[in-house]
Design a binder for these strands. Structure first.
Lengths: 307, 307
DNA sequence: CTGTGCGATACCCAGTGGGTATCGACGCGC
DNA sequence: GCGCGTCGATACCCACTGGGTATCGCACAG
């Protein structure tokens, strides 16, 4: 049995007339008769009673008709579903993300965009750090990662795109002497105590900061390590030390903390979308497009992107 | 798109390997490749990603797989449904019946038989007299009729089978002189008042009774007409007159009424199953078979069938 | 660098879907 | 009542296509 048989059967059942049905199907009447005969042989029972002025359905045919219609509808539905999936209008995307992706507001914005415009896409979110994401990719547990520093060993089989880049600024208590100056250079911070993120959380960022300080001829004294930008800002406001934080935090007018740019601190916090090299996924592509749009809009609000 | 494509697709999607899938389908690998290519062209998007060590599903393919399986299952379901309908194991039967069919207990027995053994057959019941049934047949509103006298004009395009035949006996008050006698002949009733069914309810039966009486050289005096055997028996017990009633009523030991056979009253109440000439219907056939069985069993309880 | 495994391509053949001509049967109308 | 029209079935033909065999191209493994 093939869908052709069902299409023909439905046409004849609706017209109750081989000739008219054949005309509707754009075939001649004899082949139609034969196809119906083949179908009846295949089903194992007559579906029509041939009468002089046309045909009528047998009980078996009457029972078969709605089921045949359902089958045809289901076949079409299958086709449409595949097409929609190919267009990225349906499906599921498993996203791994680091804390910063949520903190900068980019991830929430993309999520609300998807809920709004592509509700039939399921999103599964997993907060995990860069290394966990690399592992999850290897095991096929996530389809897309949002992270700040790409594990270098994964560079070969993962593809990355920086969607957002945010300069770091200095956060300090408002009472700090430097808070009075509009701008200053990195070397002016030589004597400060720092609150720093631990190296394992973002090795690239951590190393970058240390390297810049060394270039300015000092080694930063780390008063406290802390994971998570909110924690770091809290420690700064408590007077534990100064810290480099993403510029977007300067927007969040938090009392008890002053933010100032540092002239020669050419370090920025990247947010990159990462996925497995060579895997096509329309849903993932739509997600990345949305990411770019949202991140671009946010950058414009915060200020011009460096470079 | 044809079911063949879906069958092939599912095989490849399950094996993730054209060669193995082809072996499972008992075809060679190249034709399989081509069918899948055709399917992909038809759906409008690739369903597999060809990799050096086999294939994997694209997002579209992943979405397509369950839908394809559903389609195949639905096609099989359609086929089975038609087969079951052909065997008379499913479907719907619209039955018209006269009061007597229910009164003799035959209809209730058949109904409980169907509820028990063929629960997936839907039965629609319509109480209607013989003429209404003939009309309902003409309009295609019922598939089977149970009646006592076939409208003669319908004999051409309706087919009938008498499933039950019950002799008439005389019902009278126990105080009636004839109640003392074991048997008597029709002519002994020449002076009686009769309770009779109206001619329009059962013309054949009515005419038969009148004709027999005339053969016995008298014309029955009709004290009262009444439709429905129960009503008639009530009137008899109230002393309105005597009446001919089906023998099965003699079983229902109703106080206040005596029943006696009449030697030369060769009139019996038929119960016939009637259906449209030349229409095959397995459900209807099963119903008639059940009718025969039930009616036969009841006849044996009541007594031997005449002739 | 060569062998191996896998899907794609090229090409062939037979079976079948679809076409035309015609038949046979049943109703209908003059 | 008898031809004629209508409708499905049958007979026969052709071309397309589903399936077969041989072979290629490619990527990885040893």
């Amino acid at each position: 049995m093939e869908l052709r048989h069902l299409r023909y059967f439905v046409a004849v059942a609706e017209e109750l007339h081989f000739g008219r049905a054949a005309r509707r199907l754009h075939i001649a009447q004899p082949p139609l008769s034969r196809q119906i005969r083949d179908l009846e042989r295949d089903v194992g029972t007559p579906l029509f009673e041939r009468r002089p002025r046309g045909v009528e359905l047998t009980p078996a045919g009457r029972a078969f008709l709605p089921e045949a219609r359902l089958t045809l509808a289901q076949a079409e539905r299958a086709q449409r579903t595949a097409q929609r999936a190919a267009m990225g209008e349906t499906g599921r995307l498993r996203v791994g993300f680091v804390e910063a992706a949520a903190d900068t507001g980019i991830l929430p914005d993309v999520l609300s965009f998807f809920r709004m415009h592509l509700p039939s896409i399921g999103l599964s979110l997993f907060e995990m750090d860069s290394l966990q994401q690399a592992e999850a990719f290897r095991d096929g547990r996530i389809d897309l990662g949002l992270l700040s520093s790409i594990p270098p060993d994964a560079g070969r089989w993962l593809q990355a795109e920086v969607v957002h880049r945010e300069p770091l600024v200095l956060a300090m208590p408002p009472t700090h002497p430097l808070a009075g100056r509009k701008r200053f250079a990195l070397r002016d911070l030589a004597g400060e105590s720092f609150v720093l993120i631990p190296r394992y959380v973002g090795p690239a960022l951590h190393d970058d900061i240390i390297a810049r300080c060394r270039e300015a001829d000092f080694s930063p004294r780390v008063a406290q390590e802390a994971a998570g930008w909110h924690t770091i800002v809290s420690l700064v406001s408590a007077g534990v030390g100064v810290a480099f934080v993403p510029m977007s935090f300067a927007q969040a007018e938090r009392s008890g903390v002053a933010y100032r740019p540092v002239r020669d601190l050419s370090v920025s916090l990247d947010l990159a979308a990462v996925w497995k090299q060579g895997e096509k996924s329309p849903v993932r592509e739509r997600f990345v497009i949305a990411l770019r749009a949202v991140a671009g809009a946010r950058s414009r609000v915060i200020g011009p992107r460096p470079r």
